[in-house]
């Protein structure tokens, strides 16, 4: 058994990585539920944003907040552009998986072409800063990332739950024809949600640039675990995604501490398979 402090440290890092999973999964979850697009390219968008952050913060010396402000509208537009293409070529839900996988590979190649296959690390004074509380180290940027993830998830949830636009999106996802007959312009809402999904990639990208080492091959590293979190949390349910991300993050971290890091993926996929067997109608 690991010591109590190691366990506590693991749980903390599990919670914090859960924040990252939430940020990564939100765009995927929204576009899957409301656009019937399983957007694998989202992971490439995230890394494109991360590399651009590396460029803006590390090379141009911008403040990360400013970098985020620049990237948000850009990725909002990228999300809309992708949705335009998918509508233009009337790509259905299953085909979207293939098409966006193609885009993912293209973007990965593009990233490799621009930034090479070498590891890139954004060196900042605060990137690895942490405060020591008792025997536990609390990394500051990752804490900030976690709080941003919670805020983004809660705000998105409330937006979907309480606003007319949110309700229209949910109604449209259930029955687009009848929603249309009651005045919902599905196409316009689709572009909005595609843009928002894209913008969440910018948020995730900035934080990944700050806390992690970048390499083109990293693009697919979180794909499996984020898929598990999105499905566990329920499509289009930001709060469910947050909870699922935390559950997966923490159970992975505990598994790593108790056994070995290589066993971590077992947790998320065991949970995913269990949920697919026990509650398949939820997917």
């Amino acid at each position: 058994m690991p010591s109590a402090s190691l366990l506590a440290q693991s749980i903390l890092s599990g919670i914090l990585i859960g924040g990252l999973y939430t940020l990564l999964g939100l765009g995927l979850s929204l576009s899957w539920r409301f656009l019937q697009v399983i957007n694998l390219a989202h992971f490439a968008f995230v890394f494109l944003a991360a590399y651009l952050s590396y460029q803006l913060i590390g090379v141009a010396g911008l403040n990360p907040g400013l970098a985020l402000l620049i990237l948000l509208p850009i990725f909002f537009l990228i999300g809309i552009a992708l949705q335009y293409l998918l509508i233009r070529f009337s790509v259905n839900e299953f085909a979207s998986l293939l098409v966006t996988f193609g885009i993912l590979v293209l973007l990965e190649t593009l990233i490799q072409w621009i930034w090479s296959a070498d590891f890139r690390r954004l060196e900042t004074s605060y990137g690895t800063a942490s405060i020591k509380i008792g025997a536990i180290y609390v990394p500051i940027v990752e804490c900030l990332m976690f709080f941003v993830a919670v805020i983004v998830a809660v705000v998105t949830w409330a937006w979907l739950k309480f606003t007319y636009v949110g309700k229209a999106l949910r109604a449209s996802a259930e029955n687009p024809i009848i929603a249309g007959a009651y005045g919902v312009n599905h196409k316009r809402l689709a572009y909005l949600i595609a843009g928002i999904s894209g913008a969440t990639a910018a948020i995730a990208g900035v934080f990944i640039a700050l806390i992690s080492t970048l390499a083109p091959a990293q693009v697919v590293v979180w794909l499996g675990v984020v898929f598990a979190a999105v499905i566990l949390g329920g499509l289009g349910n930001p709060l469910g995604l947050l909870v699922a991300s935390l559950v997966i993050g923490v159970s992975e971290a505990i598994t790593m501490a108790v056994t070995a890091p290589t066993w971590a993926p077992l947790v998320s996929f065991t949970l995913l398979i269990a949920i697919l067997i026990l509650r398949p109608h939820k997917v």
């Binding site: 007319y164 309700k167 949910r170 109604a171 009848i178 929603a179 009651y182 005045g183 919902v184």
Partner: peptide
């Protein structure tokens, strides 16, 4: 306004939300 065959409500939403969708315009 259409009351469609088989009702075709937004079955995953609450009664009140369905009514609110009615007055979306």
């Amino acid at each position: 306004a259409l009351i469609p065959e088989g009702r075709r409500l937004f079955v995953g939403m609450t009664v009140e939300e369905n009514l609110e969708m009615g007055c979306y315009r």
